[in-house]
Design a protein around this nucleic acid. Structure first.
Lengths: 116, 116
DNA sequence: TACGTAATTGCGAACTTTCGCAATTACGAT
DNA sequence: ATCGTAATTGCGAAAGTTCGCAATTACGTA
């Protein structure tokens, strides 16, 4: 039953995360479960678009949905999602910091650690 | 200069990682720098396709390229990339384990921890 | 039952990504 | 200079993604 190589699964996971609206949803859900209405208010996207992105996240098992009366409440499925987002943030921070340092070097041209 | 919201950058980062060939490249580079030739031997992809994926990774700053004589050697740019891949692996492992447990429950129907 | 709001689904047009072929650049050896 | 191998780039066809409109489902209330 090894149907899907792990690297395919990993690529698919990343592909699923590769959309701004889906990232925002996951970030909002990090602070706890939220009804669709609330996500909608926070995210600047049409209801239909949000539904579609939520469907993607649901199908992939990254979030869970629960109907509560007339609204539907979404929540993160498992704590590891937050860890992944944190890792991404750290990488981006490192990258941006690095760029700024490089920029500073180029502009100021007075660093002790010279390139040989 | 706040041109790009952080969540857009995050989404783009994930989108870049969302391809099996690019994942495989990054995984191979985790064990140290590798010439294109070696990646090509390991990955089952046409040379031209690999080049294109390497170009994507290069442009995004996730890897660096260095010509050494007649070959080009690629390397991971910064340790944080490995951390991101680890986080992804952990999430997938959790997800697969969870699925198996659920499957076992459904098949065996004899668990102590009943759902209320 | 009929109405209003919440959320989802189906569908097609616009856009983006991917893939391989042909052409090109970069290097080392003859 | 010419040849062979390593790697990249340009380009167009095929495949995949995204977006909004219209239609639908699910629920609460009059």
């Amino acid at each position: 039953m090894m149907s899907v190589p792990l690297y395919e699964a990993k690529a698919e996971l990343f592909r699923l995360l590769g959309h701004p609206v889906r990232i925002r949803v996951l970030e909002l859900l990090q602070d706890g479960p939220r009804p669709v209405r609330q996500l909608l208010a926070a995210i600047e996207v049409e209801p239909t678009g949000l539904s579609q992105h939520l469907a993607v996240l649901r199908r992939s098992g990254l979030v869970t949905a629960q109907r509560e009366g007339s609204t539907v409440v979404y929540a993160l499925a498992g704590g590891r999602v937050a860890g992944l987002l944190r890792a991404a943030r750290e990488l981006l921070t490192e990258k941006l910091t690095g760029q700024n340092e490089l920029l500073d070097e180029l502009l100021q041209d007075s660093t002790g650690s010279g390139t040989s």
